[in-house]
């Protein structure tokens, strides 16, 4: 199951120019499936970076605008897009000039593959 998903994520990576990695983690930042190119920044792949999204999305959900779904972080040379699919988190890392809208549209293509993985993570003690 995971191998097929990894292959599919690698296929999606090739479709978007400037997209360096797609990582599916649990809310603590523990990687479950990773598709990474060599251009991805090492620091952004660490669990302590990814897990901050869990806190950020919880806080953003308290703004009175409803449940937070996505956080886009723009840095000087990278952009990080994280999606709230609790108990899973999807993290996309791309170059600063990468097509953000195209990355956001990948959500609908990845979502159907997450059901099984989400069930496994939810059942984990």
């Amino acid at each position: 199951m995971v191998d097929d998903l990894r292959k599919y994520l690698n296929h999606l990576l090739e479709k978007v120019n400037g997209l360096f990695s797609i990582i599916i983690t649990d809310r603590d930042g523990v990687p479950l499936v990773r598709a990474v190119t060599e251009r991805a920044p090492e620091l952004a792949l660490r669990p302590n970076f990814i897990s901050t999204f869990g806190m950020a999305t919880d806080q953003a959900s308290k703004l009175g605008l409803g449940r937070n779904k996505t956080i886009i972080s723009m840095y000087s040379s990278y952009q990080v897009i994280q999606m709230n699919k609790l108990p899973l988190v999807i993290t996309f890392i791309g170059s600063d000039n990468c097509n953000t809208g195209h990355i956001l549209s990948l959500e609908s293509q990845i979502e159907p593959c997450l059901k099984e993985l989400a069930a496994v993570v939810a059942d984990a003690p």
Partner: peptide
């Protein structure tokens, strides 16, 4: 709205 990214990618 969701097709914006795809449209820009096609033109690129």
């Amino acid at each position: 709205v969701d097709s914006a990214g795809m449209i820009v990618a096609i033109s690129e």
